Computed example of a mutant assay.
Amino acid sequence: MRLLRMVSWTSMMLLPFIASAQIAPQPLPRPDAVRPDPVPPASPAAPLPDEAADCLARLKRQKVRFNVTGRSERGSCSVDNTVEIEAVDTPFGLVSFPDKPVLACDFAATLTSFVQDIAAPLARARFSAPLSHVATGPGYVCRNRNNQSDTKPSEHARAAAADVTMFTLGDGRQIAVHPDDGKDDAATLAFIRGLRHAACGYFTTVLGPGSNAEHGNHFHFDTALHGRTANYRICE
């Protein structure tokens, strides 16, 4: 009897543990996921310098006389930030561009720098007279290279080229670009050759008499890239 009471008591004591063992364990409640602080909206990027305005300011600092033509469209071609060049002031006097070429602003700055730095002082040194005019043609022309239908667009179509045909001095003398026929005096030969060599420091392409038939009566200057950088030059 006593043994029966002990068994009953033991069973009663173990009953809660047995019951709890039959209940499947429940997972602990998950804490709320940690949420990162919201990312603040990106600040607007600093505006890039106004390249067009900077270039026009550069021309003014160079004492170039020009008219802003902005976006120029001719045929299927269009070029932004073009200017019409009238003249440039040099240490040896004003040099005019009677053809008033329309050029991309960057190229206009390069061409007028070349006239200021090279053409004007070289004319004074060789002829004892100031350079007065530089004939350039229209500059911007919507066409392919050498006016051929199966060639790539010319740099003229990008307003980044000029064809210089003649230099006029203050005393009226004219120095035309033409093949060396042995008839020019020493000063003229030195002037033309000096310009041609020095131009390679300003332009990436320099062509003229002797380069090919298309450039027999003028200098062609442009700033086209012939590789990834402007280090490679075509000077013929």
Rank of each mutant, 00 (worst) to 15 (best):
P36I: 05
T168C: 00
L122A: 12
A24F: 07
A42H: 02
T229L: 04
I175E: 06
A45P: 12
A24C: 01
V102L: 13
A176R: 13
L225M: 06
I175C: 03
F107T: 04
P25T: 09
R143V: 09
D32K: 11
P36H: 03
P25C: 03
V102D: 00
P98L: 09
K60S: 15
F114E: 00
G170L: 01
M6L: 15
A199P: 06
D180A: 14
F114S: 02
N146G: 00
V134T: 04
V102S: 02
A46V: 15
F92E: 09
L169F: 02
R74L: 14
V141R: 15
V64Y: 08
I192W: 03
L15Q: 05
N146L: 15
D184M: 09
F107Y: 12
A53Y: 03
A190G: 10
S132L: 10
P38A: 12
N67L: 11
Q174K: 14
P153L: 11
G70A: 07
A33L: 13
D117C: 00
H226W: 14
F114C: 02
P29C: 06
A176N: 08
V95S: 05
G93W: 08
H156W: 11
P29H: 06
V79D: 06
Y232Q: 07
C142P: 11
W9R: 11
T165R: 14
V115Y: 04
P27L: 06
M1G: 14
P179L: 10
E86M: 10
R5I: 10
F92N: 10
F97C: 03
P209W: 07
R143Q: 13
A224F: 00
Q116M: 07
P179V: 11
Q174I: 04
A109P: 03
N146S: 10
V141I: 15
Q22S: 10
T90I: 04
V39K: 09
R158K: 14
A120K: 05
T223W: 01
S128F: 09
V7Y: 12
T69Q: 12
A198G: 00
N147Y: 10
T136V: 10
V102I: 14
L3I: 08
R71V: 12
L56W: 07
P138T: 01
N217F: 00
R233H: 14
Y232V: 12
N147D: 13
T112M: 05
Y202N: 00
A213D: 13
P44L: 10
K100H: 15
P47S: 11
D106A: 14
F219L: 11
T188M: 08
